[in-house]
Write a protein that binds this DNA or RNA. Structure first.
Lengths: 227, 227
DNA sequence: CAGCGGTGTCACGCAATCGTAACATTTCCA
DNA sequence: TGGAAATGTTACGATTGCGTGACACCGCTG
């Protein structure tokens, strides 16, 4: 499947941020700094999706959108619009310029990645293997919020699920309790680090035989075993 | 077969966009900028289908619809309505207006083309499985705006219908309350996420035994059961 | 104008879930 | 080998999330 995503924005910072996040989500990122470049690259590379800033120098995102949607060769490329103000959304939506989704700045990179995946999933008709994380006989399906051990469905609570997902995403790397608290519970959680232990125990219990993949690294934290 | 499609919208951009996409899908496109022109061209050209914006200057899409459906010469022309809000859908479909289908803005051009093809196919007698979503003993018919449980017709409100349809389209995947608010209610609805709960409850109530397919995923949102 | 259906919000209560402390066990190193 | 530190385990009170019923609002219709 084509994993190329073209990102068009005139701000270097935005471009960097978006690129980094899309890359870590497994996409190949192409960049464009203005409208003309965006159109040229879209025609040449035929990306799976285009993230397009509404405000571009020279040629606005709207024009780029129209140009691409008007050309049979590129009309099928879905477009996600970036827009600065919420008020503009009204206008865009009213005009309906053929974008497939919109995000208003400021946006969280995580949100963008989710949106990109969502749009691609919608178009390619469901199954997105990128949302399946598998280690040993344990499979995590993020979109469905389901965990399976040897194809048997395991019922996890919200925190357990988030914890397991995070560990799977960072498979092989040790995660300290502090890190886990920050990333699973939130930025300023005033929660005892020992709480993590309890949740790990519950996870292991529920995973049963599948819990082999969770390793304790004494003095540091926890880690998911590499294959 | 007649491949002419008449598109009526006062926004130049929308007209361009829709035309381009329909053309690349193999249709011959006629354009109209207001209601009077739409009626005139429909009578003269007898297109195979009419895409009609609900909000037109001078004469609203509703009036155009009534006029065409009231004239034996044009009554057979199927009409797809473009509308901004979900609430309006109730009055458009199934009632005396006689529109054959509708699309709520924002829509992707791709979606429109699919809908046009679907309506045409339906008229030529071919069944169109794409319009029927079935899970368990619950069937959602998007075009007719109808929901059945064990072949018994269920009366849903506009919001309930859109909510259910969205969940069905994303069967298996968990939808957060925020996502549902965004996709069902609109982009910047300042509505409490708990409101979703209430609508889910009403949905379940109305679906009765069929409500088994709606699963609550504690801490995340809702999901339609697979199989 | 009153009645009505559709909608959004609120308060209550139950049950699942969470966080913590206390206790048990393992690991490591002097 | 013994003791301290780290981790596993257990139990329990506190919290949270969600279902439920009630109610107010609003546009529509007769």
């Amino acid at each position: 499947m084509n994993r190329k995503v073209l990102v068009a924005d005139d701000e270097e910072d935005v471009l960097d941020l978006v690129s980094a996040n899309l890359k870590s989500a497994g996409f190949t990122v192409l960049r464009a700094a203005d409208g003309a470049e965006a159109i040229a690259k879209a025609r040449r590379e035929l990306p799976a999706l285009l993230v397009l800033d509404l405000m571009l120098p020279e040629m606005s995102g709207i024009e780029v959108c129209k140009a691409l949607k008007g050309d049979p060769a590129t009309a099928a490329i879905p477009i996600i619009m970036l827009t600065a103000k919420a008020e503009e959304v009204d206008r865009i939506v009213g005009l309906e310029l053929g974008a497939d989704d919109y995000i208003t700045k400021p946006f969280s990179p995580r949100e963008l990645v989710l949106r990109v995946k969502s749009v691609l999933r919608r178009l390619t008709g469901d199954s997105d293997p990128g949302d399946q994380l598998k280690v040993g006989n344990v499979t995590v399906d993020r979109a469905r919020h389901q965990v399976r051990v040897k194809n048997r469905l395991i019922d996890l609570t919200a925190t357990e699920f988030k914890l397991l997902t995070l560990l799977f995403e960072r498979r092989g790397r040790v995660q300290s309790r502090e890190q886990l608290l920050r990333d699973v519970w939130g930025y300023e959680s005033m929660i005892d680090t020992r709480t993590v232990d309890t949740h790990m125990r519950r996870l292991r219990e529920k995973l049963g035989g599948g819990s082999d993949c969770i390793e304790t690294v004494r003095g540091f934290g926890y880690r998911i075993a590499e294959e």
